[in-house]
C-alpha cells in the first residue's frame, strides 16, 4: 500500500498559550504492509499516526494513503464506556457501515469467538481487564474489514502478560493480510513482526520531530545508519 507524505508539519497551542511544533517537515514515500513507528517519547509518533488516520488536520503539508477504509486503536479507554464489548463492535457496524443488526451481530460474534472473547462480550469495559479491553478494541477496529489499521501504543498501558496476548492478536491478523501502522515501544515486536520501521525524533537542529530513518525493520535494528537511531537503540536495548 502506497503512502506518501509531503513536507508535513504540525504545531499546537500549549495550555500556557505557546505554540509548540511537534512535527517538522516529515517526508515519506513508500509501499508498506506493516510499519512500526518508534522513537523517544514526545517525539510526535502519536501525532503523526492521528494525522494519517484523519483524526487531526496537520497545520502544514499533505499526505496520501491509497485506501479509504481504516481503523484505529487507542492506547487506552478507546471503548465506549456505556456499551458492552459486543455493542462496541455492533453499533458502529450498524450506524457507520450500514450492516443490519443480524449481520453486525454475526460479524462481532465471529471475531470475539476467534479471539476467545465471547464470554466477555456482554460486559462493559469497566468490568474487563486492560488486555481484554484492548483486544475488543482491536476487534472493533477490524470488524468493518479495513484495509489499514492504525495502532497507537496499544500495549503501553498493559501488564506484560496482557501485552503478549494483544501483540499475538495483532500478529495473527497480520498473517491474514491486514496492513497496519503501529506506534510502539515493544522493540521486539517492531523488529520481528513489522516489515518496516520508521524512527521519528527531534534533532538538535530542528524543533519538532522528523522521520530520521525508515527501512526494513531488521536493517534498522541491526545496522542503523543514523547515529541518533543507533544511540537510541543502544540505550533501550541495553537491558
Amino acid at each position: 500500500m502506497r503512502i506518501t507524505i509531503k513536507d508535513l508539519s504540525h504545531s499546537f497551542v500549549t495550555p500556557e498559550g505557546k505554540m509548540k511544533k511537534v512535527l517538522s517537515h516529515v517526508d515519506f514515500d513508500d509501499d508498506i504492509s506493516t510499519l512500526s513507528l518508534i522513537g523517544p517519547s514526545g517525539g510526535g509518533k502519536s501525532t503523526l499516526l492521528r494525522i494519517l488516520a484523519g483524526l487531526i488536520k496537520p497545520t502544514e503539508g499533505e499526505f496520501f494513503i491509497e485506501c479509504k477504509k481504516t481503523g484505529f486503536v487507542f492506547q487506552q479507554n478507546g471503548l465506549f464506556k456505556h456499551w458492552t464489548g459486543l455493542e462496541n463492535i455492533t453499533i458502529p457496524l450498524e450506524k457507520v457501515h450500514k450492516y443490519t443488526h443480524t449481520e453486525a451481530l454475526e460479524r462481532a460474534e465471529e471475531l470475539l469467538d476467534r479471539f476467545g472473547l465471547l464470554k466477555d462480550a456482554y460486559k462493559k469495559p469497566s468490568e474487563l481487564s486492560g488486555g481484554q479491553q484492548q483486544r475488543i478494541a482491536i476487534a472493533r477496529a477490524v470488524a468493518p474489514r479495513p484495509n489499514l489499521l492504525f495502532l497507537d501504543e496499544p500495549t503501553s498501558a498493559l501488564d506484560p502478560e496482557y501485552t503478549v496476548e494483544v501483540l499475538d492478536m495483532i500478529n495473527e491478523l497480520k498473517d491474514e493480510g491486514l496492513n497496519f501502522i503501529i506506534v510502539t515501544h515493544e522493540m521486539g515486536f517492531a523488529k520481528l513482526a513489522c516489515e518496516k520501521t520508521g524512527f521519528l525524533s527531534e534533532t538538535v537542529l530542528s524543533q519538532g520531530a522528523r522521520l530520521i530513518e525508515v527501512g526494513k525493520s531488521r536493517e534498522i535494528f541491526e545496522h542503523p545508519k543514523e547515529p541518533i537511531v543507533k544511540n537510541f537503540l543502544d540505550k533501550i536495548l541495553m537491558w
Binding site: 483524526l55 487507542f74 479507554n77 478507546g78 465506549f80 458502529p92 457507520v96 457501515h97 472493533r140
Partner: peptide, 14 residues
C-alpha cells in the same frame, strides 16, 4: 466526560 470517548467516536466514523 473523557475526551478519549469523543476521539473514539471520530475514529469509528460516527
Amino acid at each position: 466526560l473523557a475526551p478519549t470517548q469523543v476521539e473514539a467516536a471520530r475514529a469509528v466514523g460516527f
